[in-house]
């Protein structure tokens, strides 16, 4: 009997939770704010679904309800992706070590 592909996805999901658990505990507390902004940015990989939704309409009917929803979702996710990564970049650039022999 074949295994349902759902089980494979579930396995990936559960293992990723464990990876997340250990990786996040090793994040230094001083970087918790950048952690939040970067997790925000990466969770916007949901844009993948938005793109599929946006391109769902056929050429003579680009704007049906479901593709309009897709286009909106693309914009929202894009705000998050660009905003999230750039603001993280901006924050991380500020973390500096003490200058030696000053």
């Amino acid at each position: 009997m074949e295994i349902d592909p759902f089980i494979f996805r579930l396995s990936i999901f559960i293992l990723s939770i464990f990876i997340g658990y250990y990786v996040v505990w090793s994040v230094t507390p001083s970087l918790h704010t950048p952690l939040m902004s970067v997790t925000n940015a990466i969770s916007s990989v949901i844009i993948v679904g938005a793109i599929i939704a946006g391109l769902a309409g056929n050429s003579d009917n680009i704007f049906n309800t479901s593709s309009i929803l897709g286009f909106l979702a693309i914009s929202l996710a894009a705000i998050n992706i660009f905003g999230g990564f750039l603001v993280t970049q901006r924050m991380l650039a500020m973390y500096k070590k003490k200058k030696k022999d000053k």
Binding site: R9, I12, F13, I14, S16, I17, I19, G20, Y21, V23, V24, L35, T39, N40, I42, S43, V45, I46, V48, G49
Partner: peptide, 14 residues
């Protein structure tokens, strides 16, 4: 989509 599943799990546990 694996990318989305992995990310969701990471962000969720984070």
């Amino acid at each position: 989509n694996t990318a989305l599943i992995i990310t969701g799990a990471l962000v969720g546990s984070s």
